[in-house]
Simulated assay, not measured.
Amino acid sequence: PGISLKAENLGLAQMAEVPLVVVNVMRGGPSTGLPTRVAQGDIAQAKNPSHGDYKSIALCAGTLAECYTETVRAFNLADRFMQPVFVLLDATLGLMHAKATIPTLEEVKAGIVPRKQFNGPAEDYFPYECKPDEPAVLNPMFEGYRYHFTGLHHDKNGFPTEEIETCRKLIQRLEDKVALHEDEVESYEEFMMDDADFMIIAYGSVSLAAKEAIRHLRADGIKAGLFRPITIWPSPAEKIKEYTDKIDKVLVVELNIGQFHSEVQRASSRLDIDGLFKVNGRPLSPHEIVSKVKEIL
């Protein structure tokens, strides 16, 4: 069901370094789950959509406008890193109808970053001969440059190999081409965090409820703030660590049983991070978040 059916080809795209964008309106699970209800059940899967070692990129829209702008960004990132990029939504956003302010076509075109190409002689073209932290350079088809696609470990031409050092360098590069350039991928929002002494972490449509809850909490004298990861994977771990080092009370709110909560625990090196989870196909309300915060306090 859902994105699970695409796992094999997503792994092939990671290995062959084929740029593509996958828009995933998340659902509940396992199996068919609640396919027409709201959930954020694909967060962990977006980190490792297929077996093996690589660094997945997953963006999570939190507004209608971001459904557009994050998809544009995803295409740029897919071309930059030559791999699949997820745009994660949920049913609340997927079915939402409202006004949104989006960039003009001219602004979008101005922000497009062309994919790298090799312009030398065809006999000197080796698509997978790259620096240790750079992606493959796959020229457009039918222009005289030849290369081979495979899901197997491969050499600089793309042909299968089991040569020990070639295999090691390939897999390490698939990891490092993203891991060493996370600053190009990272994106997050801080809402009323300047003076916050209670941090809520939420993403997707849940962040909208969290913002409303924060307004109510502030009216009651509770200085709550929201940290919203827009790039889910790689997570903004350093920023999470920075905030969790100075804010004692932290609550992760999500429509699953803690799939990002465990990442916050890892990034913060803390096991006392609170969670508010819901997996019955219904959205989390601001009232539920307010009640949980007051319960913690």
Rank of each mutant, 00 (worst) to 15 (best):
I3W: 13
I3H: 10
G11T: 11
Q14N: 15
V18P: 06
V21K: 03
V22S: 11
M26P: 07
P30V: 10
T32C: 14
L34F: 13
R37K: 15
Q40D: 12
Q45K: 05
K47Y: 05
N48S: 07
G52E: 11
S56D: 06
S56W: 02
I57E: 03
L59F: 01
G62V: 02
L64Y: 06
A65K: 05
E66D: 04
C67Q: 08
Y68S: 04
V72G: 12
V72F: 04
A74M: 09
L77R: 03
A78M: 10
D79W: 06
R80C: 14
R80S: 13
F81I: 14
L89W: 08
D90K: 02
M96V: 03
K99P: 04
P103G: 08
L105Y: 08
E107Q: 15
V108N: 06
V108H: 00
K109R: 10
P114D: 02
P114R: 09
R115W: 08
F118K: 10
E123K: 13
E123I: 07
D124K: 15
Y128K: 09
C130F: 05
P135D: 14
P135H: 15
Y147C: 13
K156P: 01
F159I: 12
Q172R: 11
D176H: 15
V178I: 15
L180E: 10
V185T: 08
V185E: 11
E186N: 10
S187A: 14
F191Q: 04
M193S: 01
D194G: 05
F198M: 10
I200H: 00
I201D: 02
Y203D: 07
S205P: 04
S205R: 01
S205Q: 04
L208K: 00
R215Q: 03
L217D: 00
R218G: 04
A219L: 05
D220K: 15
R228Q: 13
P234M: 12
P236F: 00
K241L: 07
K241H: 11
Y243W: 14
T244E: 00
V250T: 14
V250Q: 03
V252C: 01
E254N: 07
L255M: 13
F260L: 13
S262K: 12
S262I: 07
Q265P: 02
S269A: 10
D272C: 03
D274P: 01
G275A: 11
L276D: 06
F277T: 15
G281M: 04
G281E: 08
G281I: 12
H287E: 09
V293G: 01
E295S: 12
I296D: 01
